[in-house]
Design a protein around this nucleic acid. Structure first.
Length: 204
DNA sequence: CCATTAATTTCAT
DNA sequence: ATGAAATTAATGG
């Protein structure tokens, strides 16, 4: 399966269409659920998480993005509100391009537009698989689905080599489980040989 | 070091 | 099997 590390647009191109560099401190909000989707965001430094809180205040994380990754892009094609929050996890630097200029950039660069479609396809494909695994009650199923998804984001898929850069709590929030069950499931998975531990990090 | 944050274990349910 | 609380380990200043 070929993987395309999702959407990384040339910085100079972005700047030439009016993208500005924004900096966000650790924990700072980039946008909130309910805000209008008005910008294309691309990370040049740091990390960003996309999340929601359920009715009892339990966090659900949709994804954590890093350098050269973009977020919120799909919403730009939809005149819609953000269905989630974006929070900076580090001191981050982010290129921000207003919607109208973003659209103009695509109009003038059809190739880029195509590339973007490929990314969306990839995204939808793996999200779908995520939903399938999330429908299971079995923690191992859920985690396996998540790991595949995360791996698809990073790129190369050499067996047992992709390091998971998330805390156990984050993994739990990504699959809607408690930390303890994640820890227990991971142990079982290691025993079964589907993952491997390097110190405390997970290799998949 | 000490303080904070993360990982794991224990102990009920 | 699961989660809240307690314990232990690591990380950062």
């Amino acid at each position: 399966m070929k993987t395309i590390s999702c959407m990384n647009i040339d910085e100079n191109l972005l700047r030439s269409f009016g993208a500005e560099d924004k900096t966000f401190k650790k924990k700072e909000t980039i946008f909130n659920e309910g805000d209008h989707a008005m910008y294309y965001f691309q990370i040049t430094k740091g990390k960003v998480k996309l999340n929601n809180y359920n009715e009892d205040g339990k966090e659900f994380i949709h994804n954590v993005l890093g350098k050269n990754q973009s977020f919120g892009d799909a919403l730009l094609f939809l005149n819609q509100y953000y269905p989630m929050n974006a929070v900076s996890l580090d001191n981050s630097e982010i290129l921000r391009l207003p919607r109208s200029q973003f659209m103009e950039m695509l109009r003038q660069n059809p190739d880029l537009s195509l590339e973007m479609n490929a990314c969306f396809s990839q995204e939808i494909f793996y999200k779908l698989k995520m939903v399938q695994s999330m429908a299971s009650q079995n923690p191992i199923q859920r985690l396996t689905g998540l790991l595949n998804y995360l791996k698809s984001y990073h790129g190369n898929d050499c067996a047992h080599s992709f390091p998971i850069e998330f805390t156990r709590q984050q993994l739990a929030s990504l699959v809607g489980l408690r930390v303890e069950t994640v820890i227990r499931a991971l142990k079982k998975m290691e025993k079964e040989g589907s993952i491997v531990f390097k110190d405390r990090k997970i290799l998949y």
